[in-house]
Design a protein around this nucleic acid. Structure first.
Lengths: 206, 206
DNA sequence: TGGGGCGTACAGACCGGTCTGCCTCGGAGT
DNA sequence: ACTCCGAGGCAGACCGGTCTGTACGCCCCA
């Protein structure tokens, strides 16, 4: 279910202040991205989403039948904006080979951890907030597996052994370093990157 | 602030059903442990805590001035029951040397991940649920640093290099594997343990 | 003229927290 | 030995506030 319709109009830029000129559904999604990514799901009420996006309640519920539906749309948007554009694409930009691109993930993490608006990983947040049995938790698990898919694709491109298991170990390093960064350890990316190097070495053709 | 008074009476066993014979404060804490560890903080209301522990509301607020105060007591209990007794003590039981005890942490994790009542790490949950700026989030960060303290002590006992940095890297593996287990990867403990072995090798005196 | 947007009032549930009663039990005073 | 009293526990009404979601009326503009 693709709620966001980008057949017309400018591209949605969630991080920037929306001028109020876009369509209501875009304003709602942009506000949801801002608030959900910073304060979680239960920490943001529908009324706040409505007032911040300058939309009436009826309009809100016309586009999203429930708050959970909006959360699903937010997760999909987060996958596009954060996972793909901010992490994977940026890491690919920084590395020339597949191995370099893999390791560059933690360089991107290092910059990300430094930001004052660092908000951790929304998929982990929602998963732990709602639980793995909740539909939103299951959706988060699905988006987390997509992240592993990106890693696995790079591992295959690099010709590493057992790319699926490699990606699962790699993902442990990513998630663990994010939690450490949330605790305040801004050097967590470097620690994870070092372990990631050892992981690559042990998955190279012997 | 130690709310629980163990100067008299049987030891508190949070996992078992309380027979209703204990003191009200014990029943409240046991119920809080059950519910908070499984469903988080915001997912459990004061009314449910009261009815489940068979205590009146006035009694509840006589012992705990607020819900947050109960959460703080819960975190302290969790540190004792989970961190110390379930993880550190059990890992020490399974290993003969300091290095073996370190690696046994992930064996204990492996058993823990298999349990159907696996509830992830309450400190991570509360930290992400409330945010690092909230008092409960700060308390969780403090308890997470205590976990690192246990690891660092074992690293020093094992004579490893730079035990503080070692413990921070080690903790990344612990937290990452817990998230992976929450996603459903019950083999996450083995992946983390393998990376932990490499970490030990690189921290041994060269 | 009619659909979509806006504003708002409202329903019904639940939140944390306060407060008033009633009951029981144990210990002190006579 | 009997009475009395207060501490503490139980039960539940109640408070203001917030939650998600519905409904209604008005307006604008195509």
């Amino acid at each position: 279910m693709t709620v966001y319709d980008d057949t017309a109009g400018p591209t949605l830029l969630p991080a920037t202040a929306m001028a109020g000129r876009e369509e209501p559904v875009d304003r709602i999604l942009a506000t949801a991205y801002e608030l959900f990514s910073r304060r979680g799901i239960r920490g943001v009420g529908v009324n706040e989403l409505i007032s911040d996006s300058g939309v009436s309640k009826a309009t809100f519920y016309r586009h999203f039948p429930s708050k959970d539906a909006l959360v699903l749309a937010f997760l999909e948007l987060r996958d596009q904006v954060w996972t793909v554009e901010l992490i994977v694409a940026e890491a690919s930009r920084r590395g020339n080979t597949a191995e370099e691109r893999l390791l560059a993930v933690f360089d991107v993490f290092g910059d990300w951890f430094q930001r004052e608006d660092f908000e951790a990983c929304s998929f982990i947040n929602v998963l732990l907030e709602m639980g793995p049995g909740h539909p939103l938790g299951k959706a988060s698990i699905d988006y987390l597996s997509r992240i592993r898919g990106h890693i696995q694709a790079l591992a295959e491109e690099a010709g590493l052994d057992r790319p699926e298991e490699f990606s699962r170990s790699w993902h442990i390093l990513m998630k663990g370093s994010i939690i450490s960064a949330t605790e305040g350890d801004t050097q967590a990316s470097k620690r994870a990157q070092q372990m990631a190097r050892w992981l690559i070495e042990h998955h190279r053709g012997l």
